[in-house]
Simulated assay, not measured.
Amino acid sequence: MSETSQAITLYVDADACPVKPEIYRVAERHRVKVFVVSNSFLQVPQDPLIERVVVSSGFDAADDWIAERASRGAIVVTADIPLASRCVKAGADVIGPTGKPFSEASIGMALATRNLMEDLRAMGDVTGGPKPFSAKDRSAFLSALDVAINRLKRAGFGATAP
């Protein structure tokens, strides 16, 4: 990494993240620092690039920790739409575990859909949750993460020093 480039940083909303092993592999390959943020202790690989962050059990504590650090050059992995919105507004790249990127253009619709589904569930009109996580989702996530890292590298952001 040159002295003028900023390192790419990955923030993982980790409590229910199904793609942590994939994130660790991609981070190692690209030499990207990863913060695994959760409300409880999670096992993470012994690697100087991977840092476990355990926040208080307060409501949205992990989201707040990530959102406070999200900025241009950061990649946030989360399925939490309100957190995704906060991070997109801060300039971070945001990817859902299914590979769906969130952007300024898509986040409004994602929030509206989330709120509608929440209301329908509260009224009992919708009782199911999201579809099960699939191998196709995992593959789409890996592709989206690689695209995001390579786009940031082209924009002048770099890897973490060895």
Rank of each mutant, 00 (worst) to 15 (best):
W65C: 04
D64M: 14
V36R: 09
A90I: 01
A62N: 11
L111D: 07
Q6M: 13
S143Y: 01
D137T: 00
K20F: 01
E104W: 03
V94G: 09
G128W: 06
G91N: 03
I23A: 08
C17G: 10
S139W: 00
R29M: 11
R25A: 15
Q46E: 14
L145Q: 06
D146Q: 08
Q43Y: 11
K20M: 05
L111Q: 13
D146W: 02
D119G: 10
A7S: 13
T127S: 12
A135Q: 11
P21F: 02
R121A: 07
D60E: 15
R69S: 10
A92Q: 05
P162Y: 09
P21C: 03
I95M: 04
A92T: 08
P45E: 09
E118A: 15
S143P: 00
A140N: 14
I107F: 12
R114S: 02
V37T: 07
I95S: 02
F157G: 00
R29H: 14
F35K: 04
D60A: 14
A92G: 09
M117G: 01
P48Q: 12
K100C: 07
P82H: 12
D119A: 12
P48N: 11
G129P: 03
H30P: 00
L116Q: 11
H30S: 03
A110Y: 04
C87A: 12
E22K: 03
I8Y: 08
P97T: 01
A161G: 12
V88D: 07
R52P: 10
V126R: 12
T9H: 13
E28W: 01
D47A: 10
P82K: 12
I107V: 15
V76R: 06
S2F: 07
G124D: 08
S134G: 00
A79W: 01
D64F: 15
N150Y: 06
V37F: 05
E51L: 05
F59Q: 14
V44C: 02
V126L: 15
D13A: 13
A90E: 10
S85I: 03
V53A: 03
R31D: 02
I23L: 05
V88T: 10
G99K: 04
R25V: 04
R29T: 14
G124A: 06
I95R: 01
V54H: 06
K136M: 01
A67K: 14
S134F: 00
T160D: 04
F133P: 01
A90G: 10
G73S: 06
M1W: 08
R114W: 03
Y11P: 08
S56E: 09
K100L: 11
W65D: 04
D80V: 06
A140K: 09
T4F: 08
A140E: 11
T4P: 02
S5A: 13
A84Q: 12
V88Y: 08
I95L: 15
E68R: 14
T78R: 05
G73A: 09
P132L: 05
